[in-house]
Design a protein around this nucleic acid. Structure first.
Ligand SMILES: [Mn+2]
Ligand SMILES: [Mn+2]
Ligand SMILES: [Mn+2]
Ligand SMILES: [Mn+2]
Lengths: 222, 222
DNA sequence: AAGATGAATTAGTTATGCCTAATTTTCGTT
DNA sequence: AACGAAAATTAGGCATAACTAATTCATCTT
């Protein structure tokens, strides 16, 4: 068949459905509207079109789901996005909080050639700078270590940050200044009302609960 | 004032007007339609809008011209385009005939940060892989050596290719295979009816007139 | 000076993708 | 079982940027 090329909007819808599905049981029109920063009627309209194209399925008032084809496309865009983020960070000296915005635009525009070229340069990485897995060329999601949010850990021990679940520039810039980034080893000290006290590289911080929920750590006990 | 961000179309119109102006005395609606691959009424419509925005001036039936502001924008896009071309060629292993298409899309989407990053990596180059001058950060066009088309040279001598005036993939791929690329030293042998006989690196070729017109060479005698 | 020709414009249409306001539907409570 | 709130949809519009068909305009020929 033909490959009519999707619009940037359509690609973003598919990608967002995929990402929401990883977290929520079901993806509502509202969730999408929030994430994509559009109003609900726009979502209804676009989902209709994507349904007609057999890229998503929609049970009204129940949720939206990607079809096989839809998921493939979502994964392609996601691969572009995450490769780009790593590339910008590694090769063009972008800071952690700058990569997302640029990748959000470039992801729709680079060719497969470009994708292959940076994947090569980066030595076919499996995870981006946020710890998010990068889909392989075959569009499989690589395994990540078992993780849970810092806020949910009960045993006070030394653990490693695996993934930071936000794209918020202010939070990212804060976290990077504190070196609370994937790969970093941190020592859990105490869970206080206001947040979680940790030691990083000698210094001690109190990580607020809201932020602790975004920091996922590798398979700790409990 | 505000910087409402132009659409990709609008940027391409401005860029194309600039490029046509370098070659022709005057830029007609038709020229634009041809280059941008749209129908004349589309051009009329867009030029009206650009006029209203004070980015171009239009004397009906006489021609289109960029205003100061319009030219600045054209030069910014052109800088993006040419930096990208060089970048793709040098750092991502693109071949000569592949760079244009990719740059044509990326040019509208990269940030000033991205521009600065690749300009840095490339050591602030003045010319792209076609020999086209890259506008500086201040948006001045850097000087190029005096050049004239290979087809117009009368004295048979050894000269250097400075610029290749096409983006046609087939021609570019042919020329790169023959090593008829900017910087290459070639020896002019004879101007025949069918074309111009040259020696490149030991081998002799007959360069057809149509193609010889696209190859500009550095300030030769005559 | 009248035509003829080609350049340009106008008029009217289409497709996207978004919006607001109004309406309908679902579902958890009571 | 009925109500009310929240979720979703419909209806109706707007802006962009194309298009085709029809018309107008400028200029070159004869
Ligand atoms: Mn995007
Ligand atoms: Mn990421
Ligand atoms: Mn372009
Ligand atoms: Mn070029």
């Amino acid at each position: 068949m033909e490959k009519p090329r999707l619009s940037e909007s359509q690609e973003d819808y598919l990608k967002e459905i995929f990402k929401l599905r990883e977290v929520n049981e079901t993806v509502s029109m509202q969730d999408l509207a929030r994430k994509l920063d559009v109003r609900p009627p726009s979502v209804t309209g676009m989902i209709k079109k994507l349904c007609a194209m057999k890229l998503v399925e929609h049970e009204p008032y129940k949720g939206v789901q990607l079809t096989e084809t839809g998921e493939k496309i979502a994964l392609e865009v996601l691969r572009h996005h995450r490769l780009l983020e790593l590339y910008l960070a590694r090769h063009l000296n972008y800071s952690w909080d700058e990569i997302h915005e640029e990748a959000e635009r470039l992801e729709h525009v680079i060719s497969e050639k470009f994708e292959a070229a940076i994947a090569d340069l980066l030595d076919h990485p499996t995870h981006d700078p946020h710890g998010d897995p990068i889909p392989t060329v075959e569009l499989e999601i690589p395994d990540s270590p078992d993780m849970k949010p810092l806020s949910a850990i009960k045993v006070y021990q030394t653990i490693i940050i695996g993934r930071v679940m936000t794209q918020d520039k202010d939070i990212l810039s804060l976290l990077s200044r504190l070196e609370l980034i994937p790969g970093q080893q941190i020592e859990l000290i105490r869970n206080e009302a206001a947040g979680i006290r940790v030691r990083v590289d000698g210094s001690q911080y109190l990580v607020p609960q809201t932020i602790a929920r975004l920091i996922w750590c590798e398979s700790p006990d409990t």
